[in-house]
Structure formats: C-alpha cells, structure tokens
Simulated scan of single mutants.
Amino acid sequence: MEHRLTRLCHPWTNGQVERMNRTIKEATTKAFHYTSLEQLQIHFKDYLWAYNSARPLRAPKGKTPIGFILDQWHKNPQPFKRDPSHYFPGPNT
C-alpha cells in the first residue's frame, strides 16, 4: 500500500475516502434510527466486522481484507509479531 496525502482544502482529490464515508453512512445513520450514541457505536462495530470479513475487494486481489491478511501471514509470517488468525473469529471459535 502506498500512503498518500491530499492537498489542503481540496476535498475532491480524496474521492476514495469520501466514497467509503458515504457507504458507511448509508449502511448506518441513513438506514437506522439510534436512540443513543452507544447503539450507533455497537452497530458501527458490527458493520465494520461484516464489511471486512464478508465483502471481497478489488485491491487485495479479490479477497476480503481479513482473508488477505491471513494469506500474507501464511506466505511470510516474519513481518507479523503475532499470529493474526486468533483476532478473527471463524467457524471454529
């Protein structure tokens, strides 16, 4: 991954972030009514987990973000300090 910064006061150069923000907003605040901030936080956490574990993306070679991390760990575990598989619940947990 390449880390890039956008120019100050130029939000149109930050399209991917804006698109992700819109996706999150459509799935949370525009779709549900929350009576408290805690409800929103719980739903947001659940939504991010579902997004990262179920939705394949184009950039990581058509895999889910979690699947991509686990594949990288299986190929080369040296850069990882710990086995990442215990962070992701699966069918055996």
Rank of each mutant, 00 (worst) to 15 (best):
P60K: 13
P60W: 13
P60Y: 10
D83I: 11
R7K: 13
P77H: 06
L5K: 08
R58W: 07
P79R: 07
N14V: 00
Y51F: 13
K63C: 13
T64F: 06
P11H: 07
A50W: 12
R4W: 10
T29Y: 08
R58L: 11
E38G: 05
Y51R: 11
Q16L: 06
Y87T: 06
F68E: 10
N14K: 01
G67V: 00
A27K: 02
Q41V: 10
A54S: 13
P65I: 10
P65L: 12
A27N: 02
L37D: 12
N76I: 08
H86Q: 04
E38C: 12
R58Y: 09
Q41Y: 04
T64C: 09
L57S: 08
L5M: 12
N76F: 13
L57A: 13
K61G: 12
P11G: 04
N14R: 09
T6C: 01
H74N: 15
R58M: 10
G15V: 03
F80C: 08
K45M: 03
R82L: 03
N92D: 05
K30M: 08
N92Q: 09
W73M: 02
K81T: 08
M20V: 14
F88P: 00
P11V: 01
K81W: 01
H74V: 08
G62M: 07
I24H: 03
A50G: 13
P91Q: 01
A54N: 14
L8M: 10
G90D: 12
Y47I: 01
D46P: 00
H43P: 05
H43W: 04
H86F: 06
W49N: 14
W73C: 03
P60V: 13
Q72W: 01
P77R: 01
L5I: 08
V17F: 03
E26S: 14
I66K: 05
N21R: 02
S36N: 09
R4A: 09
K61Y: 07
G15M: 03
L8K: 15
G90C: 06
R19N: 12
N76K: 12
F44D: 03
Y47P: 01
I69E: 00
F88M: 07
S36F: 04
K63V: 09
R7C: 10
L48N: 05
H74G: 02
I24K: 00
C9Y: 14
K25P: 06
N21S: 03
G67P: 03
H86V: 07
K45I: 14
W49G: 10
L70F: 02
S85V: 03
G67M: 02
W49T: 15
L48P: 00
T23Q: 04
R82C: 02
A50L: 15
H43G: 05
D83W: 07
R58P: 01
